[in-house]
Amino acid sequence: MTDDLASQGPFPLSRDDLLKAYRIMRTIREFEERLHIDFAKGDIPGFVHLYAGEEASAAGIMMHLKDSDRIASTHRGHGHCIAKGVDVHEMMAEIYGRSTGACRGKGGSMHIADLSKGMMGANGILGAGAPLACGAALAAKVRGDGGVGISFVGDGASNQGTFLESLNLAAVWNLPAIFVVENNGYAESTSRNWAVAVDSYIDRASGFGLPGVTVDGTDFFAVYEAAGEIIRRAREGGGPALLECNMVRFFGHFEGDAQTYRAKGEVEAIRASRDCIRMFAERVIEAGVVSRAELEAIDKEATELIEDAVRSAKAAPLPGPADLLTDVYVSY
């Protein structure tokens, strides 16, 4: 935020912050597109859920956060990690099961965490992050440090009791907790419109006594502004809120999903018309605030960063047999 206000143009962010937001989104996209390719080659073990298409949500929210603010993520957590500042090399090494990984190869894609960055973990259990984020919010409230706890949850996982109970707990305890529903239309192969009986998450939120806001989650600026308002309110003691980001998933539920449940041409159509990164780029270039060349330079750096992360992950040492028995309180 070093630029003077005049250089912001029509946006509520400084030029530097616009470039930062773009870099976050582009890094996520490159990370995920690369995993998609390398998974198909058989290089990557296990379950991998890609966040491509959803970048504006992570970036628009995390731009407001400090390391001391905490987030609880989901199985689709790579984007949240990158936007929260988790080291990309450590993430890639984790996905490759290397000892240099964010969790020393013990967690994998579904469990990347970096508590020093306020990233409380991706999660393999749907809905499990919501109570944990309430705990983070409680800790911030008790300390009085103005911090927030943010829970990300998919449209599908928003049907878990843990999530719904957390809404109520946050409301009755007036916690600085924020519930972000990342509504990408599907839970695995099942439609959100079938599995969630209300049309709007605003209705759900108000049923639990907290304010709800719905935004186009592919519009970075819409997410950024709504999140900014909600987070400011929570920091000032105004209590919890729910933010619904309507978004699109570019790849399958997990890698290897044939996606026959989607409409023919659906993925091509959303890639063409609802690509949050392209829409962001067009807007900032059109407004004359940043140049295409500047963005292209970031694209190139992101590609190089990911290439380097993959190269170093592949070259990194594997955990050794002794690592099997460490990090647990007692071995038998």
Binding site: W194, Q259, A263
Partner: peptide, 20 residues
């Protein structure tokens, strides 16, 4: 169970998954 049929309410094929 979850997605034991698959594709419920979705625009593509019914019986799309038959379980994970």
């Amino acid at each position: 169970g979850e997605d034991i049929v698959g594709g419920t309410g979705s625009p593509g094929e019914d019986d799309a998954w038959g379980g994970v």
